[in-house]
Amino acid sequence: MSFAQLCIYDLDSGAVQTVLKTDDHIEAPNWTLDGTALIVNADGLLYRVPLDAPTLTPVDTGFATGLNNDHGISPDGKTLAISDKTEDGKSIIYTMPIGGGRPQRVTPNGPSYFHGWSPDGQTITYPAFRASTGDTAQIYTIPATGGDEQQITEGFDHCDGSDYTPDGKWIWFNGEKDGAVDLWRIHPDGTGLERMTDDAMVNWFPHPSPDGALVVYLAYPEGTEGHPFGRNVSLRLMPADGGTPVILTEFFGGQGTINVPSWSPCSRKFAYVTYASK
């Protein structure tokens, strides 16, 4: 049995298409702007998976060979943001051409983990651990060309999975308070914090659809700590303005399934990864 399966969920039909089965531990698909391929990571490197002939095709990331699964494609489809530990021994955010090339450093400090582009491509949002926050992960933004970072959350025990809405008015993220992990949204200037889920599940990695109508996210069972690999999980869908989520599919997965934005450009499909024991 294959270890990882790269899948596409179709909202209109409810069908799941298995694009690729592999013994490699692939993670975190992005969907290219032209709709022809998915980008995944495995073993510290990036790979392109053409949808018309699905194979793992290496992407040149230069010196960056210690990538984690936090990467994403700019709104114009020309640039990749990656998170890599090669230089500092801890995750740093870089940008590079979508077709490959030398990464350019964005965040001066680490650990920092890419999670979302602003719709104009000018800003990146990410969770980061900083001594100034007691080494708890909070959500930050920074110009995509580098510069001063801005902390936009506070008071959470842990934050992750930040992603802009396509109108740029909100950043969604998962935040832990008092032992509960829910989805939240906040304006990019750090105002207007709103809690968007309030249930017993452990909710992670919210991704607004490109048309702004929906949010897909990963739900762990009650009592799960962190966002581990190898759990029975579900992908859920909710309206972008809040409301009751629906369960789309359940499977064995977790860390690596849908860490980063993976919607198709048409907003009717998204990609994700499931796993099985070898």
Rank of each mutant, 00 (worst) to 15 (best):
P208W: 11
S162V: 02
D60T: 05
T141F: 01
L218M: 11
L218Q: 08
Y272A: 04
I82G: 06
Y275D: 08
G89F: 08
L45S: 13
R268K: 15
S264L: 07
R185G: 05
F205M: 11
S13N: 03
H71T: 00
M201N: 13
D241F: 02
A28Q: 06
T274W: 08
Y94E: 06
V19P: 05
D76G: 05
D70H: 14
F229E: 13
E87Y: 10
M201C: 14
G147N: 03
I39L: 12
T36K: 12
A144M: 01
F251Y: 13
D12R: 12
I124E: 11
E176W: 10
S83V: 05
L67A: 05
H227T: 12
Q122M: 14
F129G: 11
D43H: 14
G121S: 04
V216T: 11
T165D: 09
L46F: 10
N203W: 06
G190V: 02
Q104A: 13
I98D: 01
G99M: 07
A271L: 02
V49F: 01
C266E: 12
S267L: 11
Q138W: 08
F129M: 14
D182P: 06
G35V: 01
K269Q: 14
D120R: 07
D23I: 08
A213C: 13
H207I: 10
P188F: 06
L46H: 11
T36D: 13
E194Q: 14
I39P: 04
L193N: 01
V215Q: 07
S209V: 09
P228A: 06
A200F: 12
I142C: 02
N203Q: 12
Y272N: 06
P108F: 00
I39C: 04
G192W: 00
P221L: 04
D178Y: 03
F3Y: 14
N68I: 10
N109K: 14
G253K: 04
M201K: 00
K21Q: 15
P221A: 01
Y220E: 03
D198L: 09
I247D: 15
S91D: 15
T136H: 13
I139T: 05
L33T: 13
T55Y: 12
T145D: 12
P206V: 10
K269F: 04
G99C: 05
Y113D: 11
P228G: 07
L214D: 14
E225I: 11
G146E: 03
N41S: 15
T153R: 02
G161H: 04
Q138Y: 00
V273K: 00
W184Y: 15
F252L: 13
P143A: 05
G256D: 05
I139M: 07
N109V: 11
D76H: 03
T107N: 03
W31T: 02
K169L: 15
D88E: 15
T32A: 10
D120H: 03
K169N: 14
G62N: 05
G89N: 10
L218F: 06
D163Q: 15
D198Y: 12
G192I: 03
G35D: 09
G110Q: 10
G243F: 06
V216P: 06
S74F: 01
V215L: 09
P50R: 07
S162L: 08
P50C: 08
D182Q: 14
L67G: 02
Y275I: 08
I93N: 01
R231V: 12
S262P: 02
P119L: 09
P208K: 00
P188K: 01
G190L: 04
H115T: 14
G72H: 08
S162I: 01
A180L: 12
L11S: 09
A42Q: 06
M201E: 15
G110P: 09
A180C: 12
